[in-house]
Nucleic acid binder design. Structure first.
Length: 856
DNA sequence: GCGGATCAC
DNA sequence: TATGGTGATCCGC
């Protein structure tokens, strides 16, 4: 429930698997149950806990809304979504970039480790860095008692009375961090530091150069005498074991050396070059030339220099590298070799929560949909595209495919700066104002240090019940002095005081933030960004390592702002038009969704590279995900046009020769799709798995059931794996319609439950987004019937073909009946649609993607 | 542009 | 006695 705990649980799982949380005979520590009980006892009844409960309720509400929305999704919508999603998936797959070697380096229990290093007294004791009210980190000894970062110290003390809490010493950590960064810079001068103890490196270029390096350039001396032992690892084993020697001298973070976590015999770890393993001489060691060796070298040097250990992950992109660095922590490393199969094998059972960007809430929401692992995330991709925003489902899709950012760009300019402080209750208004003034002074000082001036002042208030409020005001002129800022902040505060009166505000936190910076540099930056954008559009992918100045987000926002201003109809139409012109559709989609954001930044960057890749690849053989026919020797543009045509209906794509492996074999009810074997949709023929996986088998079962069973609502495509590949139509029964008339009947049935038809922008010419023809009706219902019929022409045609392909007629019709019944059932609730949001109700709005469905 | 939420560290 | 601070982004107004 509470953030801390959730996270801890998550980490507990990890620790458990690492064998660190086992209570071996005679060892101290607490089991999970005890830990949770102690935490609960300490927290129950507190105001903090009350607020946590409240927040939890809100999340549950959100989930409920989502489930209701899910219940209203028709199988047609789902099918359509599947095609759309899979088209993107196919594009992403085609442009998968495995050419970069990304490393994520993470110092082990950093603050605690520094403290232990500098104070031998602490060596074998459980310690944490922080205060009685909050801990920043703990050593591994303390973790056995459930003591974790982000846990209040007083609770930690209850878990572990011997715990020593050391006050943080950030200057020291910064200094150590600097030492580490100096090493990292040698491998990638453009490395990206995420914090004092974490960084990403792109060592692609280093690897290239390193191939020709003589041994001497790869030789390092062991300054610590006996400390370091570099395992001449057997293939398949990582250097995550500490020798006895090392354990005795290394800061004592780890009492148990973690068990070997590398699956034995993992063939993809086998390449750790045997002749390349570090060769140990007297007092020196020579590292090899592989990525694995480079990272061992980095970790070796870090330890030599700082006497601290680091863990690392090596992978083709940042998302994976980050997950990897966690895998053999502490003092270990893990590599995902640059092969699609390895990536997919790794991803397969990976809990989504391990992925950076998926937090507690997202995890819970996805869990409600039966999604825990990346495989499930992939299987539910169509559903997700209907329930989540475009940004979100694109992000999910990337994760499910094991994709992530491959280039590390420098951080852009800051967008805000703030100060906030927690204190024991202040309810005296005068005190509150003076506190506010202090904060403003501090902020002004910080702003001046960076020469920043902003136009938006935001105050943040947290009352004694932990409820948070923010109030902002944007002014025309820029502000920088304490007085200027306070003038605004004071007014904001005053309003809140007045609103609350006659009761005083009972505050426990106050903060002031400045944003909307508009200094000269920023403007210059923006222009550069736009220019850069125009240039990169035409040029090939820049080589890794020589990334230009981080381009500004505006480059993507600009074109989008324009499109946002258009009406929904306009937008859809022009999207279609542009699709049919020269722009490959996927790029349009990508750019819209892939705007910068922390987890999403990766997507933006990827779309950039995809774009250029797209252009560089022409005329290949693709398989159309709709008609399943090879499109030989076509350009991507032509291919996309073909797919669009197919989606539009049978008129342009006579898909009469549908291969037997499409709908029939893909609709195995309840059967899990094997992500790591079935490529989303089709790949180019020259690909290893070269099989077609289709996008269908969509059915709508038990949509009201919000249990984990939801996972069995398989929207998946084919279940082809190399081994079990078969073309035989199987026992499953895809949706089928006996005839077109019935289809239309179903459609009109569904029409009555279609959400929000009357909320669609009015006053527009009604142009069918499917056939692109203007409709001579102003009746939205009629219009929508038309759109649906248009949409379903194609599907009906496919279903006919399906029948031709001898799929069990009997089962189909029974399935069909069920569907109709469900549709009828849903009709009753049609106006109950709840919004996918927790915000206040005004005009009910249809979630964008549900609406989108009618126009795609 | 605003405000609430989520997320990472 | 007691549950942080900073920055970024997203979504729905």
């Amino acid at each position: 429930m509470d953030n801390t705990k959730e996270k801890n649980n998550c980490k507990d799982d990890l620790l458990l698997r690492m064998g660190l949380n086992d209570n071996k005979a005679g060892m101290e520590g607490l089991d999970k149950e005890k830990i949770n009980k102690i935490i609960m006892d300490a927290t129950k009844g507190s105001r903090f806990y009350g607020n946590e409960l409240k927040k939890e309720k809100q999340v549950n509400q959100r989930i409920e809304s989502m489930m209701q929305q899910k219940a209203q999704i028709t199988s047609q919508q789902l099918r359509k979504a599947q095609l759309q999603v899979d088209r993107l998936a196919m594009d992403l797959e085609r442009n998968r970039n495995l050419n970069n070697t990304i490393v994520h380096v993470d110092m082990d229990a950093f603050y605690a480790a520094v403290e232990m290093r500098d104070n031998p007294e602490l060596k074998d004791k459980p310690i944490a860095v922080g205060s009685m009210s909050m801990l920043s980190t703990s050593n591994y000894h303390a973790r056995r008692f459930g003591v974790r970062a982000a846990m209040p110290g007083f609770i930690a003390k209850r878990l572990c009375p011997q715990l020593i809490i050391v006050p943080p010493n950030f200057d020291k950590y910064r200094a150590v961090s600097k030492e580490v960064k100096e090493i990292l810079a040698e491998y990638d001068p453009n490395f990206m530091a995420m914090s004092l103890d974490e960084a990403y490196l792109n060592i692609t270029q280093h690897l290239e150069e390193r191939q020709n390096w003589p041994e001497d350039k790869r030789r390092y001396f062991n300054k610590m005498g006996n400390s370091i032992k570099i395992d001449s690892d057997k293939p398949g084993e990582e250097a995550n074991r500490l020798s006895e020697d090392e354990r005795s001298i290394s800061p004592l973070l780890f009492e148990d050396s973690p068990p070997d976590l590398q699956p034995q015999g993992n063939p993809f770890q086998l390449n750790s070059e045997e002749q390349n393993s570090p060769q140990i001489f007297q007092n020196s060691v020579v590292f090899g030339t592989s990525a694995e060796e480079v990272v061992k070298e980095i970790r070796f040097r870090i330890e030599q220099k700082t006497m601290l250990t680091a863990s690392a992950g090596i992978a083709p992109n940042t998302m994976l590298a980050k997950v990897c660095s966690d895998k053999n922590k502490p003092n270990g490393q893990y590599q995902i070799l640059p092969s699609r199969k390895v990536v997919m094998d790794f991803i397969k059972d990976l809990p989504i929560r391990k992925v950076s960007g998926i937090g507690k809430v997202t995890e819970k929401m996805l869990m409600a949909l039966g999604i825990v692992t990346c495989t499930e995330l992939y299987q539910q991709r169509a559903l997700l595209s209907l329930l989540f925003s475009e940004t979100s489902w694109h992000y999910f899709l990337h994760i499910a495919l094991g994709l992530g950012s491959t280039d590390l760009e420098r951080d852009g300019e800051r967008k805000s700066m703030s100060v906030e402080r927690t204190f024991s209750e202040i309810s005296n208004t005068e005190e509150q104002y003076s506190l506010c003034q202090e904060l403003c002074t501090e902020l002004a000082h910080d702003l001046q240090k960076e020469g920043l001036k902003g136009r938006t002042v935001t105050i943040k208030l947290k009352n004694v019940n932990f409820e948070v409020k923010t109030r902002a005001s944007t002014v025309p002129s820029t502000l920088s002095t304490a007085e200027e800022i306070f003038a605004i902040a004071k007014e904001l505060l005053k309003t809140e005081v007045n609103v609350a009166s006659p009761h005083p505000l009972r505050l426990r936190l106050m903060g002031v933030r400045m944003s909307t910076f508009s200094n000269k540099d920023a403007k210059k930056h923006q222009q550069m960004g736009i220019i850069g954008f125009l240039q990169t559009e035409q040029h090939a992918l820049s080589s890794p390592g020589c990334t230009a100045e981080r381009t500004d987000k505006t480059e993507f926002v600009k074109p989008l702002e324009i499109s946002h201003k258009k009406s929904f109809f306009d937008k859809k139409r022009s999207e279609r038009i542009s699709n049919h012109q020269d722009t490959p559709r996927c790029e349009v989609v990508d750019q819209q969704a892939l705007q910068a954001s922390q987890p999403f930044q990766a997507l933006k960057k990827m779309s950039e590279s995809l774009e250029t890749l797209e252009n560089s690849r022409n005329c290949q053989t693709f398989m159309c995900p709709v008609c399943f026919r090879d499109q030989e020797g076509v350009s991507l543009e032509a291919f996309n046009e073909h797919v669009d045509a197919c989606l539009d209906g049978p008129s342009t794509s006579e898909n009469s020769k549908m291969p037997p492996s499409s709908y029939a074999s893909s609709a195995v009810a309840g059967q899990k799709e094997d992500v790591h074997h079935s490529i989303p949709l089709c790949e180019q023929r020259d690909c290893e798995d070269g099989e077609v996986t289709s996008a269908d088998g969509v059915d709508l079962e038990e949509t009201e059931d919000n249990s984990l069973k939801a996972a069995s609502m398989d929207t998946s495509g084919a279940n082809h794996s190399k081994e079990e590949h078969s073309d035989t139509p199987n026992q499953s029964c895809p949706i089928s319609l006996a005839n077109e008339a019935e289809a239309v009947r179903i459609l009109s049935e569904q029409e009555s439950i279609r959400p929000c038809t009357d909320e669609i922008v009015t006053g527009q010419a009604l142009v069918c987004p499917v056939c692109n023809l203007e409709q001579k009706t102003s009746d939205l219902t009629l219009f929508n019937v038309h759109v649906d019929i248009c949409l379903n022409k194609g599907i009906i045609q496919e279903l006919r073909n399906n029948e031709v392909n001898s799929v069990g007629q009997h089962k189909e019709s029974s399935r069909n009946t069920g569907r109709l019944q469900k549709a009828a059932g849903r009709t009753k609730r049609r106006r109950q649609r709840t919004k996918w949001s927790t915000s206040k109700k005004t005009k009910p709005r249809s979630p964008r993607h549900t609406l989108d469905m009618f126009f795609k």
